[in-house]
Simulated scan of single mutants.
Amino acid sequence: MKIIIVEDDKVLSLLLSKMIERLGYEILAIVTKGADAIKKIQALNPDLVLMDIMLEDEIDGISAMNQIREAGNKVPVIYITGNSDPANFKRAQQTDFIDYLIKPVGFDDLKQTIAKV
């Protein structure tokens, strides 16, 4: 499985990449901005996206996924966020996500969630 990580926290993106590699999956890219996420996901066609909601630019993770969906891309997405705001969860539901995990995310939680894909 080929995965793109969209996460603006460098430490967390490193931790997620180590967990993904430990699970035996390939990381296609790690990006920190919504605009870059849209471009990379469209260009690299991953099997899965791990998406933070709050990113470095004006396009948050949910808005990025909305644009990706509008372009016809149905790539599975797992949100990993520090934001447990019900309004964001409701917005995220419109993108047909696999799971919505609240940070910090443990190895077993990530493994079980990826297994849903």
Results as ranks from 00 to 15, higher is better:
residue 1 M to C: 09
residue 2 K to T: 00
residue 4 I to Q: 08
residue 6 V to P: 01
residue 7 E to N: 02
residue 8 D to Q: 03
residue 10 K to T: 12
residue 10 K to H: 12
residue 10 K to M: 14
residue 12 L to M: 15
residue 12 L to F: 14
residue 12 L to C: 07
residue 13 S to G: 05
residue 14 L to C: 09
residue 14 L to E: 15
residue 14 L to A: 11
residue 15 L to N: 09
residue 16 L to C: 04
residue 18 K to E: 15
residue 20 I to C: 02
residue 21 E to T: 07
residue 24 G to F: 10
residue 24 G to C: 12
residue 24 G to Q: 11
residue 26 E to Q: 14
residue 27 I to R: 10
residue 29 A to K: 13
residue 30 I to V: 15
residue 30 I to L: 05
residue 31 V to P: 09
residue 32 T to V: 13
residue 32 T to D: 15
residue 33 K to P: 08
residue 33 K to Y: 08
residue 34 G to K: 06
residue 34 G to V: 10
residue 35 A to C: 10
residue 37 A to K: 01
residue 38 I to H: 01
residue 38 I to A: 01
residue 38 I to T: 03
residue 38 I to R: 01
residue 39 K to N: 02
residue 39 K to L: 01
residue 40 K to P: 05
residue 41 I to L: 05
residue 41 I to K: 06
residue 42 Q to M: 14
residue 42 Q to I: 04
residue 42 Q to L: 06
residue 42 Q to G: 09
residue 43 A to P: 04
residue 43 A to V: 03
residue 44 L to C: 11
residue 44 L to T: 07
residue 46 P to L: 03
residue 47 D to S: 08
residue 47 D to H: 07
residue 47 D to L: 01
residue 47 D to P: 05
residue 48 L to D: 00
residue 49 V to P: 06
residue 49 V to Q: 07
residue 50 L to F: 07
residue 50 L to S: 07
residue 51 M to W: 09
residue 52 D to E: 12
residue 52 D to H: 08
residue 53 I to Y: 13
residue 54 M to Y: 11
residue 54 M to P: 01
residue 55 L to V: 07
residue 57 D to Y: 01
residue 57 D to I: 02
residue 58 E to Q: 09
residue 60 D to K: 04
residue 60 D to P: 06
residue 60 D to I: 05
residue 62 I to A: 01
residue 63 S to C: 05
residue 64 A to S: 11
residue 65 M to V: 06
residue 65 M to E: 04
residue 66 N to M: 13
residue 66 N to H: 10
residue 68 I to Q: 09
residue 68 I to Y: 08
residue 69 R to P: 04
residue 71 A to E: 13
residue 71 A to M: 06
residue 71 A to I: 03
residue 72 G to P: 00
residue 73 N to R: 03
residue 74 K to C: 10
residue 75 V to W: 01
residue 76 P to W: 13
residue 76 P to R: 11
residue 79 Y to L: 04
residue 79 Y to Q: 02
residue 80 I to S: 04
residue 81 T to R: 12
residue 81 T to L: 13
residue 82 G to E: 07
residue 82 G to D: 05
residue 83 N to R: 13
residue 83 N to H: 13
residue 83 N to Q: 12
residue 84 S to Q: 10
residue 84 S to F: 10
residue 85 D to W: 09
residue 85 D to G: 08
residue 87 A to E: 13
residue 88 N to Q: 12
residue 89 F to D: 00
residue 89 F to R: 15
residue 90 K to M: 08
residue 92 A to H: 06
residue 95 T to K: 05
residue 96 D to C: 08
residue 96 D to G: 09
residue 100 Y to N: 02
residue 100 Y to H: 04
residue 101 L to A: 04
residue 101 L to H: 08
residue 102 I to V: 03
residue 103 K to D: 00
residue 103 K to Y: 05
residue 104 P to N: 12
residue 104 P to M: 14
residue 104 P to S: 08
residue 104 P to D: 10
residue 104 P to H: 14
residue 105 V to E: 00
residue 106 G to E: 15
residue 107 F to V: 03
residue 107 F to E: 07
residue 108 D to H: 10
residue 109 D to N: 10
residue 110 L to N: 11
residue 110 L to V: 11
residue 110 L to E: 11
residue 111 K to H: 13
residue 112 Q to S: 15
residue 112 Q to T: 12
residue 113 T to H: 12
residue 114 I to N: 03
residue 114 I to K: 12
residue 116 K to R: 07
residue 116 K to H: 00
residue 117 V to K: 11
